[in-house]
Amino acid sequence: MMVMIAPEHFLSFLSDQGFSLASGVPCSYFKDTFTSLEESTEIYYIPSTREDEAVGIICGYFLGGQVGFLILQNSGLATIGDALTSLAQLYKIPLLMFVSYRGLEPDADFPEHLVMGDVTEDVLSAYQIPYWILEEENWKSILHQAISVMNDSSLPVCVLVKKGVLSQ
């Protein structure tokens, strides 16, 4: 069994890549990450009230010359459609999004995630957003690829995070 990515290693990697702000809405798949984010001195974290608000914050931060990333549950993908298409994509603003991949397996306790779980990759494809699925083994290489595509295209990219990868 793989060991989850240590949140402090994950965040210091992102800090080394130049990210100094994070904003979004939590998911239990990111529980440990958010604990580290709230304590981080390198990355300032703003809890947003909605996921589209976080897109606005990170885009505004970029227009001021600094780079941040977005963190949200895949339910929030349904909230950020206009913020992606009429802000980040329209103005060509690079945006790294970490999205939890919930609803992959039938779960009687959490039926609210099932439909979005089914369509998550279709939604990203429909919005023409390149995406990767984060894995414990070669996570730095996956993030390097995502960040490289984001910078080369100056557009949003997405990293999907399954259960257990970034939090117990």
């Binding site: 589209d52 608000e53 606005g56 914050i57 990170i58 505004g60 931060y61 913020a83 009429s86």
Partner: peptide
């Protein structure tokens, strides 16, 4: 300036990000 076209509902969020990014302005 930052003239928004779409992004309905987001000018304050964008302003917040910009204010944090450029604290001297």
């Amino acid at each position: 300036q930052v003239y928004l076209r779409g992004s309905m509902g987001l000018p304050v969020s964008i302003g917040l990000g910009l204010a944090l990014s450029q604290p001297k302005k």
